[in-house]
Each structure stands twice: as C-alpha cells, then as structure tokens.
Design a protein around this nucleic acid. Sequence first.
DNA 1: AATCATCAGATTGTCAACAATGTTTGTCGA
DNA 2: TCGACAAACATTGTTGACAATCTGATGATT
Lengths: 229, 229
Amino acid sequence: MDMEAGKRPATDPEIYQRLWNAIAERQISPGTRLKEEQLSEIFSASRARIRQVLQNLAHDGLITLVPNRGAFVSKPSIEEARDVFFARRTIEERLVERLCVTIDAAGIGKLRDHVEEERKAHAHADVASAIRLSGAFHLMIAELAQSQILTDLLRDLISRTSLIMAMYQQKDVHNCRPGRTQCDRRLHRCLDAKQALAVMHHHLAHIENQLDLETDRVATHDLEDILGF
Amino acid sequence: MDMEAGKRPATDPEIYQRLWNAIAERQISPGTRLKEEQLSEIFSASRARIRQVLQNLAHDGLITLVPNRGAFVSKPSIEEARDVFFARRTIEERLVERLCVTIDAAGIGKLRDHVEEERKAHAHADVASAIRLSGAFHLMIAELAQSQILTDLLRDLISRTSLIMAMYQQKDVHNCRPGRTQCDRRLHRCLDAKQALAVMHHHLAHIENQLDLETDRVATHDLEDILGF
DNA sequence: AATCATCAGATTGTCAACAATGTTTGTCGA
DNA sequence: TCGACAAACATTGTTGACAATCTGATGATT
C-alpha cells in the first residue's frame, strides 16, 4: 500500500482534536518532538495547516514552540504543575459553588449518568476511556455552571493536568480512580454549597498530593501508530 | 510619498502588541473589520504573518474569526460580558487572597508607585494611558501573586473588559476612575486578607454595574491613522 | 585525544501565486 | 419599482517552492 499519502483530507478541527486527545490521553509522551512534515503526511494536510494547529495547541500550553526548532509536547515543571492545580482550584471551586445554586434535576441526571459511565470504564479497565471521562466529568460541571469562559479555560487546564500526571504520577492510573468515593461524594452532596466546595478542594488537593516530583520519564513512541487512520 | 509600503519589517510580537493595544485601548471600535491585506500593508508584513497574529488575537477573544469572511473586533454580548466579570472575580479574588499572604515590602512599593503613576495620568486627563495603567495595575497584582497561568488568563480578560466597556459603558471614561478611592483602599488594606478580598469583589462588581446593557454603538475609524507608524 | 571550525543534511520560517468563497453591482423581466 | 439572477470584484484559504536556521558529523589543528 504505497498510496497512503492520499487517505483523506482531514479538517483542521479534526487534526487539532486528534492531537489534543493523543496528548491529553498520554499516548504521546511529554518531550516528544512533533515535526511538521511528519504530521503533514499523517493527516494528509499541508504544512501550513499543521502549523496553525500547532500554534493553537501551543497557546493551550499542551505543546511548546521553540523558534527554528519546532514543536515539543510540553514538559511542565514542578512549579508549573503546582500552578496548574492552583488555577484549577480557583476555577473549579467557584464553578461548583455556582452550580450548587443553579443546578436542576436534568443537570443532576447528567452528572449521575456520567458517573455511571465512568464506573463502567473502570470496571473494564479501559484506561484511555477512564482518563477521558474523568476530564469530561470536571468539564461537565463547568458547562452546567454556565460559564463559557471558565469552561474553556478549564478545558486547557485539564489537558495540562493530564500531561502533568503523565510526568509525575506515582501509582494511580487515573486522577479519579477511587471514582465511587470522590466523584460520588461530590455529586451527592451537590445541594450543599459549602460541602461540595470543600469536596472539590480536597479532591484537587488529593490529586496534586499524589504526584511524584522527581522522575522525568521520557518514552517516545511512533506517532504514525498513534495518530494514523 | 509613494514608498510608504517599505517602512520597516515589524516583527510578529510587535504586530500583535500593536493590535492588542489598539483594541484594548479602544482605538478600534468593536465590530470593525480587519482585512488581512490592509494590515499587511500597514505593518509591511506578509499576509501569512498577519494571519498568524489574527489567529492568536482570536484565541484571546479580542477578535472573532468568521470563516471565509475575515476578522472582526469582537462585540461581546451582555451574557459574555457578565461571564467575563464572573471569570475576573473568580481569578482576581483568589489572587488578591494569595497576595495578601505573600506580599513583601518591595511588592507594596511597586503597587504604590503604580498607583501614583495612575494618579498622574488621571490628573493630565490622559485617557489612553489611564486605561492602560488601570489594566496594568490589575495585572501587576497577578504577577506579584506568582501565578503565571492566572496572570496570562487575566491579561486576556482585562483586554476583553476593555472591549466590553467600549460597548456598554454609560458615563465613566475609565474602569478605575475613582482611582484614589478604590485602588488605594485595596492597596492600603492589602495586609488584611478578608478585607482586600471584599474590596476586590466590590471593585469588580462596581465596574460591572456601571455598564449600560442597551446600545450597540458602532463607529469605525480609519485603521491607517490608528496603527500607522 | 580534545577542541574548534566547517560543511552537509534536515527542519522550520517566509513568501507570493493560485484556488475557493463571499459580496456587491448591474441587468433583466415581471 | 421591485425581486431574482448573473457576472465582476474583493477577500480569504491553500499550496508548493524557496530562504534562513539549527543540528550533527567530519576533519584539521594543537
């Protein structure tokens, strides 16, 4: 099969999403270099479009652009990691606070369904799904809290968190592994503002405390395998 | 003078900053269309680079990119406006909270100097400077609070605030006009966390309440005059 | 053997021409 | 006069080629 270059055009948002997922779900290790031409071939897109997508990813902090050198999956430092969690606490606590006041039955239903889905992923040891769903849960809270801006900001922070965990995680496979404890508690007590807030605070602090601030594991895999169609 | 096209190359960050300032300082009205070729001539840069800069500005929410139509200075809706203030309260209250704990003499000195500068601008009725300095003050708080991420986020939010005020402002020329009251109080009581937090909350709420949620004034001026060298 | 200059290869940065799309203007017919 | 259609124009989107830059290797020199 030598005609692999002309598989499908692949739109810009697709490319972005694909890379975003691959990084956030830790299929690409921090530090990995992303060559424009390489991606250009994988997605059958011109370098210019790849370049634009990389620009966006860089703005989200997922990759780092070094002038004349290229794009690398970001390797957040300890300080940056702590900063990400600080920002997440800031944003998510406020969101939970607001959500507790405004949430309705439909919203609670959605959260419940999601927790159920997450539980299933854990049961099947579906790590990739579990990671994605865990982030999605936090994001859902943001969306239900009706702040487009904070939702967007949080989306980036969650993906960065994923990166951070890829670098500094000690043992847990998943930032919400005790899903039925943390997530459920947060959910069930969602009608009492103060408690929900405290739970969210504790939840994020818990994740942060699990981190191992030492190793710099680097393991580059073949991008074609990960991103290819 | 027909050789106006070859004035100077103008680097990417310069272009970005120039446009950012022009929009944030309200020299360009919301809704104004920014044509690539037009900017390309003004800055003596190729369209490709202009395009990249526009991409970044769009990511910051300062301009809106409509596919196949071009870039327009954003016209935030009432809902978006409220959301911006919600996000600012979220971020800035937390920053002030932290700053109160960590600030040192040098930091206080910086803030004091800045307030003084701001006072001068007001005294000279230097509106452009006043707007810029007011934003810079809030930003300085963020920087002193040592959170790179929240600082970056706040920078965008402040510029968007400027846009919002350009659209919905009733009377005041400036979001911190009673500079010697609000800003100073916030500064002087900076050693007591609870109070400073309350002051910041009140300050932002005050700005938000000054808005006029009705008119959609559109006044497009000549970009060449505003941006030209 | 170690250090530094130089050169080839690879990769990113820039550009200008071309294609696709959207907008306006002008024309025709009712 | 008004509306619909069509052509001309203006603007954005895309591409491939070329220039600038960095990396790593080679080899000369001390």
